[in-house]
Design a binder for these strands. Sequence first.
DNA 1: TTGGCTCGGTTGACACTTCAAGCTAGGATG
DNA 2: CATCCTAGCTTGAAGTGTCAACCGAGCCAA
Lengths: 163, 163
Amino acid sequence: MDVQQPRWLTDEEMQTWLALASVLIRLPAALDDQLQRDAGISHFEYQVLAMLSGAPERTLRMSTLAVFANGSLSRLSHVAGRLEKAGWVRRTPDPTDGRYTLAILTDAGWEKVVATAPGHVETVRALVFDPLTRPQQRQLGDIGRRIARTVDPGGSHLDSFSS
Amino acid sequence: MDVQQPRWLTDEEMQTWLALASVLIRLPAALDDQLQRDAGISHFEYQVLAMLSGAPERTLRMSTLAVFANGSLSRLSHVAGRLEKAGWVRRTPDPTDGRYTLAILTDAGWEKVVATAPGHVETVRALVFDPLTRPQQRQLGDIGRRIARTVDPGGSHLDSFSS
DNA sequence: TTGGCTCGGTTGACACTTCAAGCTAGGATG
DNA sequence: CATCCTAGCTTGAAGTGTCAACCGAGCCAA
């Protein structure tokens, strides 16, 4: 809308942007491929299971889980249906307030995460951390946080997430 | 498969990875939103048009274009169909070798790029470059290229692309 | 208690990507 | 030439995400 004098990209900026655009497309695809191949699930499904595995009681409200997993509530609802059918998750109304729905990781779901996490972490390490020097790894953290904060100023990306 | 001793992520690495994961999801979504809102096209469609606009004769083979736009040939074929119906692109068999198909940017397509590019560039600048210091911008280029090269070792991401 | 409001969650239709199969032009091989 | 093979591209079906409409539980006010 109404750009007076477009601040064009320099050659160097363009090279940077092309590299980033490539990463933006291909890195998620590579992670999806690995998970699909080794565990038969998508990256989003993995995030859902992983977030639940790290939550108290292995339980989260659907709306909270949607934020943690970086997805819309609608998307989560569809996916939760599939995960439920697979026996990894079950849903029940929150006993303390029937408006909420609790998503709970089953024992089978826990086993799935335990079986899947190491290979996935290994892939993240191989694709993201290993090619960088240690100072670059630290820089990437700062850079990532800055961009994330700019893209989504109301973002709550401060989950202590192990497992 | 078969991970002997998973090299777990340290807390700092986990923070970095969470920030990056967030960017990986939300930055493309933000770029898509801007283009959809202001120009009614997806980011992938924009990339197709933009790559053609920077090519000699505003023409590229479908297979080449697919690589430049970071997409599969099948996906490009579907999208090219839509862009063709919109009058921005036309396709003809390569006169010198009928096995290839040439995608050509029409005048209307050129106008579309000219009208859309400034706002898009402005968004990229606002979301990616502005929040970073100049050294970080340079670091991001190096980091992006390293990761891109690792994810896709056969990648030819060296297009001098202006416009 | 009744009606309306809010909001978490679900559902179904539509759009887009992927996957696998198929088509065709050109080259290679006999 | 005739046949096979390769490779670029297209096509249709199946799966997944998005969007908008809807449902229902709890809250509040009359």
